[in-house]
Design a protein around this nucleic acid. Structure first.
Lengths: 197, 197
DNA sequence: TCGAAAATACTCGATTCCGAGTACGCGAGT
DNA sequence: ACTCGCGTACTCGGAATCGAGTATTTTCGA
């Protein structure tokens, strides 16, 4: 019965929304969209319904009523239950307080970089650099713009966090490229040898 | 039949290992461990065997022979096939060249931070700061140490990348804490109000 | 030399994920 | 008055995940 606990952040988001007020799943989806949480939390229609179901099974949320608006399909409204608020605050606290290994795609790619030929790797890393520059420029553009500048910073810190990480990534990749180009990085000879035959 | 393509980095790692030489699954696991790739790539026994199977179905790898060492269980040795090397290089190139949205747990947590009371949030964020400091100190310690200092940098860049990101995270969280403490962050009043009633 | 512990090499099945598909209602235009 | 297409609200099934379990074998200390 132990539906996989605390693996899927979407469940956390659902609890957080219901902590505010009761809602039906579709409304959760649109609300998350509106607040641009889809950028920070992996949201997916298919998952949403099964996640809510699993929360109900675990007694963290309860189906409240079945609404019907005109002849539209029924919508089941859910509310958070007492154990649900406990779980929400506890889970969230842990995520905030305890750093965990995060597995990113790029880290995996870096760890296998040796499969590519050195020159090829440099070319691709440079492409990444320019894409990152574009992305950061676009983000800067947004900052002064419309909806974003109206909101208090507190409501989009996650956005700033992501930007900060990207900036670090840009610096890292840039200097990596430089080191390979200047041949100052350790192990380059070995790398070339490996791809010679 | 379209076994989910390019979602699981473990499949990439398997291709990379077989690109070097044929192997059986258990050897892949231990090799990945030895090279400390388990820190960068999510490795899991259960997944490994099904991932290899799925690669075989797609014709990217082929079962080569069934060995038997003494009276130990049989081991099926796999080799990479032509379409497998194409897929490996193509996939890896894309991961290197094109930055993608990475969803981290902490980013999700940040985006829901408002669920916690301000003082509580500060306390937890400070705990994170001290844990991050510990982690970074330990990492620094390792750098000069034993196995790590023997290897050329090229073979553990992913490690440096992770450290660089962590350092940025530390700075970010530290300054966030400070801003909340000094009440200079926008939206703090609203946040307190929300938790008043 | 005997037994305990660690290593080897998987297997299994309950659960979860995910994206395409579906089916209907509503409003804008003509 | 009609239809075209978008928005709404979900369903479905197959694939993927994961961690615990299994059964043997080697190692190593007392």
């Amino acid at each position: 019965m132990a539906t996989r606990q605390r693996s899927n952040p979407l469940a956390l988001a659902v609890l957080a929304l219901l902590y505010e007020r009761p809602m039906h799943p579709y409304e959760m989806a649109t609300t998350l969209r509106e607040r641009r949480k889809e950028d920070s939390i992996k949201l997916n229609y298919g998952s949403l319904y099964s996640v809510v179901q699993s929360l109900e099974r675990r007694g963290l949320v309860t189906a409240q009523e079945v609404q019907r608006d005109g002849r539209r399909p029924e919508r089941t409204v859910y509310a958070i239950a007492e154990p649900g608020t406990v779980e929400l605050l506890d889970w969230l606290s842990e995520l905030v307080a305890v750093p965990t290994r995060e597995f990113t795609q790029f880290e995996a790619a870096l760890s296998l970089l040796a499969c590519l030929k050195p020159d090829e790797a440099v070319r691709l890393l440079e492409e990444r650099v320019s894409r990152l520059e574009q992305e950061l420029a676009a983000a800067e553009g947004l900052r002064g713009h419309s909806s974003m500048s109206k909101l208090p910073r507190l409501l989009y810190i996650e956005w700033e966090y992501r930007i900060a990480l990207r900036r670090t990534e840009l610096e890292f990749v840039s200097s990596l490229v430089q080191e390979i180009r200047e041949e100052t990085i350790e192990g380059l000879a070995m790398w070339r040898d490996f791809h010679q035959q």
